[in-house]
C-alpha cells in the first residue's frame, strides 16, 4: 500500500493548507461534480438526472483540463456530453420514462446500496489517502508542447498504441452492428 514513488517530490512537500490556485479550482469543480453526481443518482425526475449528468461529466472535462490533458477533455466533452447524454435522453424517451417526479425511481435495494457505497467510500478513501498523502503532481510545463496536447497525445496514440487503436475500431464496428441488430424491429416471419 505504499507504492514506491517513482519520481522525487518536486520542490519539497507543499502543505495541504497552502493550496495553489489550480488546486482551489480543482477542489471547487470537484465539489460541483460530486454534487451533480449525487443529484443524478438520487433525483426522482429522470430527465433531470440526465441533465445533472451533463453537469457532472462537463465538470470532469474541466478537471481534465486542470490536469493538463487537453485532448482528453475535448474528447470528453464531445463524446460524453455530446453523444452519450443525448443517447441516454433518447433512451429515456423511448422507454417512455415519465416526465416529472416518479416516486419509484429508487428500488427497494436502496438501503443496502447506501451501506455498500458508504463502506466502499470509507475503505477506499482511507486507503487512497493513506497511500498518496504526500504525493505531488508536477504540472509545470518544462519543454515543448503540453503533455496532454493533441500533438503529444496523437504522437503517442499513433506511434505506440496503433494496434490497440485499430482493434478498438473493430470493436466499435461490432458494437455498431450489434446495436443496430438489437434495436431493429424484427419482421413477423423472421423469427
Amino acid at each position: 500500500m505504499n507504492p514506491v514513488v517513482p519520481q522525487p517530490l518536486a520542490a519539497g512537500h507543499p502543505g495541504f493548507l497552502s493550496a495553489t490556485g489550480v488546486e482551489v479550482v480543482f477542489l471547487l469543480v470537484g465539489l460541483v461534480i460530486l454534487g451533480a453526481a449525487l443529484v443524478t443518482v438520487t433525483t426522482k425526475q429522470l430527465v433531470h438526472a440526465a441533465l445533472w449528468l451533463v453537469v457532472a461529466l462537463g465538470g470532469i472535462a474541466v478537471e481534465y483540463l486542470l490536469l493538463t490533458a487537453e485532448f482528453i477533455a475535448w474528447v470528453q466533452v464531445l463524446i460524453y456530453v455530446g453523444s452519450v447524454v443525448v443517447l441516454l435522453l433518447f433512451g429515456l424517451m423511448l422507454t417512455r420514462a415519465p416526465i416529472g417526479r416518479s416516486p419509484d425511481a429508487d428500488s427497494g435495494n436502496r438501503w443496502v446500496a447506501l451501506t455498500v457505497a458508504l463502506a466502499a467510500a470509507a475503505t477506499l478513501v482511507t486507503v487512497v489517502i493513506d497511500a498518496f498523502r504526500a504525493t505531488w503532481i508536477d504540472l509545470e510545463q518544462r519543454t515543448g508542447p503540453g503533455k496532454g496536447s493533441s500533438e503529444v497525445t496523437g504522437t503517442a496514440l499513433f506511434r505506440h498504441w496503433v494496434l490497440p487503436f485499430e482493434a478498438l475500431s473493430v470493436l466499435l464496428l461490432a458494437a455498431l452492428v450489434g446495436a443496430i441488430v438489437l434495436s431493429r424491429r424484427q419482421k413477423a416471419g423472421e423469427r
Binding site: 443524478t40 443518482v41 429508487d106 428500488s107 457505497a117 466502499a120 467510500a121
Partner: peptide, 10 residues
C-alpha cells in the same frame, strides 16, 4: 462510490 450507489439503488 456515488456511481456505485446509483447502480445498486436505481
Amino acid at each position: 462510490c456515488v456511481g456505485l450507489y446509483g447502480v445498486l439503488a436505481r
